[in-house]
Simulated scan of single mutants.
Amino acid sequence: MSKIEFPSKALFMCDGSKCGKHKEIKKYFKTTIKENHLKKEIEIFKMECSDRCKNAPILYCQSENKWFDKVDLELAKTIMAKLIS
């Protein structure tokens, strides 16, 4: 029987109508994870609308147990740097 592996860190990205428009953020995370060979350590999940549309895009970081709102590319880079270190 094979052993199931789970990542130690996860990013949950809201995929509601407002948050889902910010595709560049998700693309940044996916590209950075791939370039740094972190697919087994960090996984990205879509979540249903978090009903916080005024603060889109919304992101939840599982390893830090922290919510982020109005995530732009600079904040995404900061979050990723913390996840990698």
Rank of each mutant, 00 (worst) to 15 (best):
I44Q: 01
K23N: 13
K46S: 12
L38S: 03
N65K: 08
C53G: 03
K18H: 11
D15W: 02
A56L: 06
N55M: 14
E41P: 03
G20V: 07
C61D: 15
S17D: 15
L38N: 00
A56I: 09
I44E: 08
D51V: 04
E35A: 05
I44W: 00
K46Y: 12
C61I: 13
T32H: 05
K26C: 07
H37R: 06
W67C: 04
S63F: 07
E41G: 02
T31N: 09
D51P: 02
H37S: 08
K27D: 15
E41C: 00
L38R: 00
L59P: 04
I42A: 02
M47N: 05
F29K: 06
Q62W: 08
L38W: 01
G20N: 07
I42K: 01
L59G: 07
D51T: 00
M47W: 02
N36I: 03
D15V: 04
S17M: 12
E24Q: 11
K66D: 10
G16V: 12
C19H: 06
S63R: 05
F29Y: 15
S50R: 06
N36S: 12
H37G: 00
K66W: 00
K23Q: 14
C49S: 05
T31P: 00
K21R: 14
Y28R: 06
E35P: 03
K21I: 07
N65I: 11
E41S: 10
K54P: 09
T32M: 13
T31D: 13
K39T: 03
K26E: 15
C61P: 05
K26A: 12
K54E: 15
I44R: 01
M47K: 05
F45P: 03
T32R: 11
R52E: 14
H22R: 09
K54C: 11
M47L: 04
M47H: 01
K40M: 03
W67I: 11
E41Q: 12
K21L: 14
F45V: 03
I58A: 06
K46C: 02
K30Q: 11
Q62D: 15
S63Y: 04
K27C: 10
S17C: 12
K26W: 06
K23L: 14
E43C: 09
I33P: 00
K18R: 13
E43H: 04
I33L: 01
D15H: 11
R52W: 13
M47Q: 12
K54S: 15
S17A: 11
H37L: 07
C53D: 11
W67T: 09
K26Q: 14
N65E: 13
K21D: 08
C53R: 01
I33H: 00
E48S: 12
E43V: 08
E35N: 13
L59E: 03
H22E: 15
M47F: 03
Y60N: 11
